[in-house]
Amino acid sequence: MSEDRIDQTRRLYATVAHTYAEVLPDTRYEAPLELGMVDHFIAQLPDSELPVLDAGCGTGRMLHYLSTRGVSPVVGIDLSPEMIAHARTGHPGVALETGDLRALPYPDASIRAVLCWYAIIHSDTADVVAIVDEVGRVLMPGGTVLFGFQAGTGERVVEEAYGHDVTLHGVLHETPEIAHWLNEAGFDVTAIADRGPVGFERNSQGFVLARRR
């Protein structure tokens, strides 16, 4: 992600963070397939006392879901300071940081699993490859990662995102591509799912679960 795109993304979420937290407080808009993938991810967690990372945690709605499923300890990181501020309000006991997913502030093999839930929607191919490599660095051997993302090719543009005078620029990815990059980075892909758009959605959704060799 170029510095201009990073700045643009930070400005977007600085503007919409409060509305985002109100509109998406939890997993009420996730379809059963999505929650099934997250539950499968949880069921595959390796036996370890290392933390589970919510990479791109936003305002913390998936941190809440993980906690209700008994996942502990959890940590989170997001590019937006304003989104992290909301997450800290709702999850005061969780270690949360502002940072770039391409340069995670965690030592090698210090994380047992990574949930990257719609956190690559602003990332182009080169950035996703860098994120996959970085996830592989911080994961323990046998650690798992689940990617959820808007599926397809090209980009999507949303004017007046979340009711504000800002434009959301998204990047679409296909599940075979994500699976390929994970395989190249030393992962074994264990589950792939795609579903078409429902309701107000414009795009398909994709999910890839993998385990670090």
Rank of each mutant, 00 (worst) to 15 (best):
P92S: 07
Y118V: 04
H86V: 09
A103H: 15
M140W: 03
S80A: 10
I111H: 11
M83N: 09
W117V: 07
E82R: 11
T89E: 13
P105I: 10
Y118H: 04
S123Y: 09
S80Y: 06
V135F: 04
G93P: 02
M140E: 15
L139E: 03
E134D: 15
E97T: 15
D124M: 11
C116R: 03
G93V: 04
A119W: 03
V74S: 08
A119S: 09
S123D: 10
V71D: 03
V138R: 11
D124C: 13
A109E: 07
L139C: 12
V128L: 00
V71P: 08
G93Q: 00
G99R: 07
E134K: 14
I120C: 08
D124T: 09
V132T: 10
S110T: 07
S123H: 12
A95G: 12
M140A: 14
I84V: 15
M83F: 06
A87I: 01
V138T: 06
S72E: 01
E134F: 08
D108M: 10
T98N: 11
V128D: 04
M83T: 09
H122R: 02
G76Y: 01
A126F: 02
A126E: 00
V135Q: 05
S72Q: 08
L101S: 13
L79M: 10
E134C: 13
A119L: 00
V135N: 12
T89A: 15
G99I: 02
D133W: 06
W117R: 11
Y106R: 14
R102A: 15
P81I: 05
A103N: 13
D133N: 14
G90C: 00
V129Y: 07
D127C: 13
P73W: 01
V138M: 06
I111F: 08
I120W: 04
M140P: 11
R88D: 05
S72I: 01
P81D: 01
I77Q: 11
D127F: 05
T98G: 14
G136W: 00
G136V: 03
R137K: 02
H91C: 07
L101F: 06
D124K: 08
